[in-house]
């Protein structure tokens, strides 16, 4: 349903652009949750903003590539054109729900406003739709909460309100950028459960952006691991966690304390991610890779399909599988 092809987001002058997202491609089917995982600065948030057409102006821009929503490229459309063309059916939720809500308006009005914009109904009808949406996100006591102000809600409830607002446009695709990072684990598990349930009930696709491998394992159907602006590995979630093929993916999993219980020291990935624009040639992970070979430093690694639906950007993936 959503197809991103060769998406490249750049900053800096047009004559010497620096790519912070470099040639990212992925697809998203109905009712599917794709986890886009990576460390800070890897370009995952930029990817999500580019997909939504929400890149800050002035600033980064889509230099190459297309974002096809049901076959129509939306990168060239302005936000209002997207709505008019009937392609506005994407919505986004963010990490910090408090800053996305107006503190001096009742949440019922804020949800109703989103309903009004998208469905052209107003007044009591919009408010009752708002109430339905709150029920949909399993807000306890939705009718009462319509008249609450954001500060009267807990962090988890605020995130539920944000999801309700996002659902007001009946989205086909929901982009969720670290929506549970600011929440406690006991609340996080409930919000993740809610997203899974909504995905199934509404047949909605979710692009879930996170830095947390644990969250991805719990929620996603498929996973794309991002590093230095590139997707370095894509696979179904069981496959990725069972048989990671990229050295970076493997490293990320190994250094999680909860996977490592008992060991004296944690395995680490040495060094830090490269600053965008400083990798001239070769593999972006070469500087930190434990299995680096000379050719990695000069030649861009191929994108290989090591098994059905499992792609890896590495010349020498874990567990063999060299180019045929």
């Amino acid at each position: 349903m959503l197809s991103v092809r060769d998406l490249t987001v750049s900053v800096g002058p047009a004559t010497a652009p620096v790519d912070i997202v470099a040639g990212v491609s992925f697809g998203l089917a109905k009712g599917e949750i794709l986890g886009l995982v990576g460390e800070s600065g890897c370009g995952k948030s930029m990817t999500s903003l580019a997909v939504m057409g929400l890149l800050p102006q002035p600033g980064p821009r889509v230099r190459v590539g297309e974002v096809l929503l049901e076959g129509c490229d939306v990168t060239q459309l302005q936000p209002w054109q997207r709505v008019e063309a009937g392609h506005g059916r994407m919505a986004m939720i963010f990490q910090e729900p408090m800053t996305s809500l107006n503190p001096v308006r009742r949440i019922g009005d804020q949800i109703a406003e989103a309903v009004r914009v998208h469905e052209g109904i107003s007044g009591a009808a919009a408010l009752s739709r708002a109430c339905e949406l709150l029920e949909l996100v399993r807000m306890p006591d939705p009718r009462m909460q319509l008249s609450a102000y954001p500060h009267q809600l807990s962090g988890g409830q605020r995130q539920r309100v944000m999801i309700a607002i996002a659902l007001a446009c009946r989205p086909q695709v929901l982009v969720a950028d670290e929506p549970t990072t600011a929440l406690d684990v006991t609340i996080q598990v409930q919000i993740l459960g809610l997203l899974r349930e909504l995905c199934n009930r509404l047949d909605m696709a979710i692009l879930f952006i996170t830095h947390d491998m644990g969250v991805v394992a719990q929620l996603a159907d498929r996973v794309a691991v991002m590093y230095a602006g590139r997707i370095v590995e894509t696979a179904a979630v069981d496959e990725l966690f069972g048989k990671p093929r990229h050295h970076y993916t493997r490293g990320l999993m190994d250094c999680m304390p909860s996977r490592n219980s008992g060991a004296r020291r944690l395995p680490t990935i040495s060094g830090q991610p490269p600053v965008p624009g400083t990798v001239a040639a070769g593999c972006v992970f070469a500087l930190r890779c434990a299995a680096v070979r000379d050719v990695c430093r000069v030649a861009t690694p191929p994108r290989m399909e090591v098994s059905r639906g499992h792609e890896v950007l590495c010349a020498f993936p874990l567990g063999g599988g060299e180019l045929p």
């Binding site: 684990v185 598990v189 409930q190 993740l192 349930e197 644990g214 719990q218 979630v237 069981d238 966690f241």
Partner: peptide, 27 residues
């Protein structure tokens, strides 16, 4: 118990979503 159960385990075969409903801490 709730806290331990809610840790997102990096293992897709041990999914806990939907299995836990534990409310929110009071203010």
């Amino acid at each position: 118990r709730a806290l331990v159960a809610a840790i997102p385990k990096p293992d897709p075969s041990k999914r806990i979503l939907g299995a836990i409903e534990m409310g929110e801490p009071p203010s």
